[in-house]
Amino acid sequence: IHRIHPTHGIIGEEFGNHNADAEFVWVLDPIDGTKSFMTGKPLFGTLIGLCRDGVPLVGIIDQPVLEERWVGIVHHGTTLNGQVVQTGDVVHDLSDAMMYTTDPQMFREGYELERFTSIRDAVKSPVYGGDCYSYACVASGYADLVIEADLGVYDYAAIVPVIQGAGGYISNWEGGDLHLDKHDTECHGRVVAAANHQLWTSAIDLLSSDTDG
């Protein structure tokens, strides 16, 4: 990236940041799902995102073991290994939804755990584990919802275009856009992704109520 795009910035989980205030910034996570990687579970992935003025525009979720690669471009669609994929538009009620979260322990005691519990009790079934692969399943129409917290920008910048390109919705728990400059002030590492608008609004109604930080 430095050689081909010397004016671009880089935000990386493993190697730190370089020129992070640039117009174009690449957000990299070489191994999203370290615990899965270390224990042989093939649900980790490599995340590559490109943002312009803090807004995610292009994202890649790559799972090397399964040889699956999702590429999402905002307003231009999402593909899996070159084939167009779309989120599901069949399940509209939380009571029928399959919800992913990587680990229930990622939610802090108090507000986060209470809000997560309200969603967990409302959906048809929670599914644990998956990291970035959970979002890929939503993009491909297999899962309906992902609720997570304690994320860094490198955990979701690449995922935003993949979900949006496939027709889904992704935001912070208050319904706000995921933007590099708003991570500490609005997002706080809390992310919700949904297959369609009705599921997303239902989730936001539960997640954003009685907010105390």
Rank of each mutant, 00 (worst) to 15 (best):
Q198D: 06
P104F: 10
H183G: 11
R108V: 05
V27S: 15
S208V: 07
V71H: 01
Y142S: 02
D205L: 09
A203I: 11
D144A: 00
E14L: 08
S202G: 07
F24A: 13
G49F: 03
L28D: 08
V146K: 01
R115N: 03
L207P: 05
I204L: 11
F116M: 06
P64F: 02
A195K: 03
S202Q: 15
D103G: 00
T201K: 14
Q63C: 02
E68V: 06
S171G: 09
D177E: 15
C51P: 14
D32L: 06
E68S: 11
V91P: 01
N172Y: 06
T117A: 07
T46Y: 03
F37H: 14
R190A: 03
D53V: 07
D89K: 15
A203T: 09
P161G: 11
V55Y: 15
T7F: 07
E186C: 08
A22S: 15
G49V: 05
V90N: 11
G152K: 15
Y111D: 06
L66K: 10
I48Y: 14
A139H: 00
L47W: 09
I11E: 09
G88A: 06
D150S: 14
I61V: 03
K41N: 14
Y128R: 00
G110T: 02
I31W: 05
D103K: 10
G189W: 06
I159T: 10
T87D: 04
A97F: 01
L145I: 06
G72E: 10
S209M: 13
D53M: 10
P161H: 08
T34V: 08
G110P: 02
L178R: 08
I10W: 06
D121Y: 07
K41A: 12
F116P: 03
N172H: 12
R120D: 01
D103F: 12
E148L: 12
D131C: 14
D62A: 14
Y128G: 02
P104S: 06
Y135D: 01
V71C: 00
R115H: 04
V127F: 05
R69C: 04
T185R: 13
P161Y: 01
T39P: 10
T39S: 15
